[in-house]
Design a protein around this nucleic acid. Structure first.
Lengths: 328, 328
DNA sequence: CGCGTTTACGTCGTTCGTAACGATA
DNA sequence: TATCGTTACGAACGACGTAAACGCG
């Protein structure tokens, strides 16, 4: 068993059992992977994949088990490499962030700029995805760090660092019935208007639906997108009232549209940085965390990351506080 | 970075920084290890050991960190190997048990015989050690499984499987003052007699000392040994009253000496099987666990070992119940 | 017939062991 | 001078890539 074999195994699994594709990903040739896979199977004494003709058709149950361990092993190896790179103060590297569109578009830019300033040689990659995919690619080691939002509890697995709290806002065109009030509508009022919001709001367990369900109503979700810019476009087109994260409101939106608070029954949300337990981050990744959450001390961060102990995080600031602190 | 390099690194660390000795342990030559270590250090970019002249003098702080990860990685690799060997129903292998003398001498024999019957090709190694060393060698991966006793809570780290409960007994020669009563002496009475017990009883936090301290007394520990047989020898020599685990009492002891219950203030003890979280055991090791704790279902065991979930163990039987069940 | 995997083969790099050397107590 | 680690070198092994063969849709 070699680390190369395990790396190839994982690459094959992550390429949908296509050895040729996997070979490209690991910068090797297809016969090389094929042979190493065979050798690994020979050593273990059983097949890791079931073959259908010549192609790989599925992972065997034993293969799933081995794959899991292989991921853990490779993750630890990566930890050593990260630790070593930090130790020798290497200032170049890659940083892959798995995150949702809203974070990438409205939250991360200043933080990333900050990191880029301190570490100009770091290549930063944004991996936009839905919430589920974010968690998956984080767990698979395809991203170093994830930044996502939830309306309630922190995600179960891994280390969740609370970054800031935020509220939803309503965005309506000038002259829209909701705009006249100039204040947050009630849920009952809101239920009478078509809404434009995120894809996630159609899920029955979404906080939006639950808030409405609590008073026996159902929102009219006219249109959904995972892209706040798209939502705004349709708001401008008069298709409905946009319900989106306050972070997504730009100065231009304030000029051209009407921004209202969302009904108070909609719970406050939290944005989290996520990473698996025990993962060692490069210094620039810690720097990113610090840029995202200035209320957290760099050393405390390091300690929690290293020690794996559940930290008593201070109550994170609201988005308003945070963005004011940044612009000031 | 290769698994070989990590294996060599760990071997060097576990050989007291003696490369020559480490080379023998891993069945390789000394220059081989020396070179691989150098290569690893080159790749990581810093020294793992501080050199004093030509010899290795100490591990660097960074080396400690890398060593930790290396152990984790190698442990996972071993898990894969064990899993594979189980999967192909391999019936040979090695089983190393870290345990104390009393367990090895009086508790394990029938269980080991049972395993040997089902798996004659398995080489079983007993690694006798004090309690601290047991935990250390288990964590270092030098033992597959540990069996130890405590008077109170289960050991903190790793998975602790309660095997059975047991009491201490007093062993005195015929005609000893304590023998006349024919029943358990009080702590006060016991305090007036010299005692012969285990090494561990001299620790101030030992349950023995604490029980005496609770009533403001101190036991007279005349002699200690980690070996129950030694204790008995000195009891026979009339040097004092032996205070030892009931498992250590043989039929011959009952004939030749007087066995009394210990004062009821001495808490009941528990014998545990210990293994680190996430360690995959060979089938014969699970068989050993089952032989030691017949009250536990093999499949439940497997599930807990695999799932890593804290099990709600059933209350384990007492040693008396357990040994009767075995002899019957 | 194209796609993807396996097999075959030659080359290159790496590892390993032996042997000699260096340093240290 | 004995012990231990490093360097040097040659042999053997193993990995990799190219090229060709094989199956399947």
């Amino acid at each position: 068993m070699t680390l190369t074999q395990l790396r190839y195994l994982v690459a094959i699994a992550d390429s949908g059992l296509n050895i040729t594709l996997a070979a490209e990903k690991v910068h090797a040739t297809q016969p090389g992977l094929s042979k190493q896979l065979k050798q690994l199977e020979d050593e273990l004494g059983f097949l890791l994949f079931v073959r259908k003709g010549r192609s790989l058709d599925a992972i065997t149950p034993a293969g799933v088990q081995v794959l899991e361990n292989a991921r853990r092993i490779l993750a630890e190896v990566n930890n050593v490499r990260s630790y070593a790179a930090n130790h020798r103060r290497e200032s170049h590297g890659e940083l892959t962030l798995a995150t949702t569109h809203t974070q990438a578009r409205f939250v991360l830019p200043p933080a990333i700029a900050e990191v880029k300033r301190s570490y100009p040689q770091v290549g930063i990659h944004l991996k936009p995805a839905g919430e589920g995919e974010v968690l998956a690619s984080l767990a698979k080691g395809q991203a170093d760090l994830a930044v996502i939002s939830t309306a309630g509890d922190p995600p179960a697995d891994g280390l969740a660092i609370p970054l800031f709290r935020w509220k939803r806002v309503l965005l309506v065109p000038r002259g829209h019935p909701l705009a006249d009030a100039g204040q947050a509508p009630t849920l009952e009022t809101l239920a009478r208007h078509p809404l434009i919001s995120y894809d996630s709001s159609v899920r029955p367990e979404s906080s939006l639906r639950r808030a409405f369900a609590a008073i026996g109503l159902e929102p009219q979700i006219a249109l959904t997108a995972h892209d706040a810019d798209l939502i705004k476009t349709y708001v401008r087109a008069g298709l409905g009232a946009g319900l989106l994260a306050e972070m997504a409101v730009t100065a231009r939106d304030v000029e051209e549209l009407v921004v209202l608070p969302a009904p108070p029954q909609l719970p406050e949300c939290m944005t989290w940085a996520l990473l698996p337990h025990g993962r060692v981050l490069r210094d620039y990744a810690v720097e990113l965390l610090h840029a995202l959450a200035p209320q957290l001390d760099r050393h405390d961060l390091r300690r929690v990351l290293a020690g794996n102990l559940e930290a008593d995080w201070p109550t994170p600031p609201t988005w308003v506080e945070l963005s004011q602190a940044i612009t000031v």
